[in-house]
Design a binder for these strands. Structure first.
Lengths: 259, 259
DNA sequence: TAAATCGTTTCATATAATGAAACGCTGTTT
DNA sequence: AAACAGCGTTTCATTATATGAAACGATTTA
């Protein structure tokens, strides 16, 4: 469901409905019919039909050869124009590929946005078994390496606020679900300057992440490397860290140069 | 203005207005106030205000620190989920970088969409003076190398249809504005298997492009290399072509493998 | 052949979008 | 200091438009 950041204002309900329909496509199912969407959203069949027709004629949706709707090129166009974090996205691309070409695992690059990790960029592992995240999607911060790094180097006030608004639900048996334990973990991360996710989000998935700072030593983003526990061995950490840190420095140099 | 692909149907006007507002941000100006947008679109100030508020609360727009609106992260999220041409976008990334790293000029990758070139991917030149196009944006086909290649290898029927719906306006003195001349040019491109744009879109800008085929030898996309006329010399063409063709073959192999 | 889908259209009704005007705020000009 | 001009925002009566149950025609399934 779409996140409303203000109290119930004088919103245009048609527009809200249109975007609620589009938001359905964020899920795994990428192709929808009229009645399916009406059922999913609870909107009347006629209303749904007309909203979909409208979105289609605007290019925000498109019909495939089976007459099912899918997200359209207008959204691709608009999405590529979003200027928020644009510099970070651009300047992270090459360094991420350097890291990925050396480590051969999936590399992610993200920031904290509304108390969640927002993935701005990635380079996928060339191997068959790999993590696959959507750029532009969100993930829980407290049980990912990238999220824990971003939290660890946030201000005390932001961390407190985060803990207040977040419920630490267990994703696996390893998930940190106690606020005190999480605070200790963040302290440890600040000290060692990297974070690990030992199957805390998903069984079999291990990640390591480090911070990216600006010229004022404030954290601006984080880089993580993720791989299956079968080949992601702890004895490689020092080696991984050396490579990731090189990439982080490349990014830091370019953002300090351009700002 | 947004392209309406059907006769005036039973469209939801609020949604049309919302997207017309978003479409204003496709222009060069990326930050807008309420009254500015109202003036630009012709909508009433109150209506504009409420639509903008709605779009903001949905995350489709966002306010900067000066309370001006800019495109929001919801569009980034949705844009990254658009599945049309997704495989092409993904599989072109690495080959484009190979080309760019050898030629050191901006490399573009695009398809024909609604009679225009749709840019699906790019790698920018590392040099200061460079072409800068938006991924997801559209460009005229008849006066770009990439567009002429895509046209040249389209079916006769598609070319005829293109010429019927397109007016060949001059962008520079070199632009081909006569349909017969353009048809001759396409014939030449088919024969030599590459296209040149000799400052036909913009003075000082030269491009070279080649086709990318699928396993049935149908054109699926085109790769172009663009640079300023000051350093883009015709005697380098053979060298460029060798490099670009290598990249095209990489893409062709991966799309034939995955389909 | 009948039943069950689907997307689409109809039409009376009620709801929600609309716009002129007023409001409060900020910064500039007189 | 006062008047002005710019901005985003709110108000409220009016009107236009979104709405949904039902019917429709076309496919697909039983």
């Amino acid at each position: 469901m779409i996140f409303m950041n203000e109290d119930v204002k004088d919103l245009n309900l048609s527009v809200v409905k249109a975007f609620t329909l589009l938001d359905v496509f964020v899920g795994d199912k990428k192709e929808w019919g009229v009645r399916e969407l009406a059922k999913k959203t609870g909107y009347n069949k006629s209303t749904t039909y007309r909203l979909l027709s409208t979105l289609e004629s605007l290019g925000a949706l498109q019909k495939n050869n089976e007459d099912k709707y899918l997200l359209g090129l207008k959204l691709f166009e608009l999405g590529n124009l979003v200027s928020i974090h644009k510099a970070l996205r651009k300047q992270s691309r090459v360094p991420l590929e350097h890291i990925a070409s050396e480590i051969k695992e999936t590399v992610h690059f993200g920031v904290l946005s509304k108390g969640q990790v927002l993935y701005l960029n990635k380079t996928e592992s060339p191997q068959g078994l790999k993590v696959s995240t959507q750029i532009g999607s969100y993930q829980k911060a407290y049980c990912t390496a990238i999220g824990k790094v971003l939290l660890a180097f946030s201000s005390e006030k932001e961390i407190t606020e985060y803990l207040k608004m977040t419920s630490l639900d267990a994703c696996t048996d390893n998930t940190i679900t106690d606020a005190q334990v999480l605070l200790e973990e963040l302290k440890k991360i600040r000290k060692q300057q990297y974070a690990l996710d030992m199957e805390e989000l998903e069984l079999g998935l291990i990640c390591i992440a480090i911070p990216v700072f600006d010229k004022n030593d404030e954290i601006v983003a984080s880089i993580s490397v993720s791989g299956p526990s079968s080949r992601f061995k702890l004895e490689n950490i020092d080696n991984y860290l050396t490579i990731i840190k090189k990439g982080a420095r490349e990014i830091e140099e370019s953002i300090n140069y351009y700002n």
